[in-house]
Design a protein around this nucleic acid. Sequence first.
DNA 1: TATATAATCGAGACTTCTTCTCAGTTAGAG
DNA 2: CTCTAACTGAGAAGAAGTCTCGATTATATA
Lengths: 139, 139
Amino acid sequence: MAREMSQLKKALKQAGYKLTPARLAVIGVLQTHCEHYSHQQILTEGRKIYPKLSRATVYRTMELLVDLRLVRPIYLNDPTQRFVMATGGHHHLVCSNCGDTIEFDHCTTEQLAQELATKYNFQINSHLLEFQGLCKACH
Amino acid sequence: MAREMSQLKKALKQAGYKLTPARLAVIGVLQTHCEHYSHQQILTEGRKIYPKLSRATVYRTMELLVDLRLVRPIYLNDPTQRFVMATGGHHHLVCSNCGDTIEFDHCTTEQLAQELATKYNFQINSHLLEFQGLCKACH
DNA sequence: TATATAATCGAGACTTCTTCTCAGTTAGAG
DNA sequence: CTCTAACTGAGAAGAAGTCTCGATTATATA
């Protein structure tokens, strides 16, 4: 966790951005609670670290992190935008009924990614694989 | 296209919902322009079919179609929620820089889906596989 | 075909989310 | 330590999404 945290900080700094308390609070939230946080949740959690944190700054910081491809936005099962770390891939099973989300690790997209990169001359940085259906409690 | 259209209509009817002009306009948009439309775009396009179409009805209809698992929401490269048909899977390459989206057909997740369904006792209905990176124009 | 009625609608008020503006503050280079 | 461009919080403004309610209508049934 501490290692990833310093990675984010390092990336920000290398890109020429200042490491302000507000940004460190947002990064802190993203790192400590490895979840799928919305802007609102990041604001609420971030204020526990840095109480003055403003809503606008959360939006600005997340936009920055997305631009730098350090995090990426996803939708789960409600109309709220959420974020995950952009390192590697993300793999979910999302229940269409209760919204429950299971993460799984094993992923078989390596070879496909290779093929697509060649075919479309596309530099692939991360991926999202999401299955939708009904969890065991809902079917 | 006409076949898919009647599938959507049939599904709505079978579920006990009325086929109103407003709903047919929304369905018409989803079917005719096989794209990733936002609420706003569906409203604008839908009004070309049925001018009285209201914003609230677009939201209501999309919620309905998502509940019935006929469409599913996705996120591409801006903070707007969009929708795709929920049949089968969806496969995109999304450029982090210009937002350009390439769709591809070949997908290798069948076996993985099987394994996960068994492991988590999860009934999988559709999937989304999305690679993020830089398109050939942006790197 | 006509009728009854529950489902659905449009309009607009209202709430929530996101962006913008601006004057004050500050991280970090020198 | 000083200076300055980068950054911030606060709140206004604009956009997106939800809710309410009286009017309308698709469709089952006769």
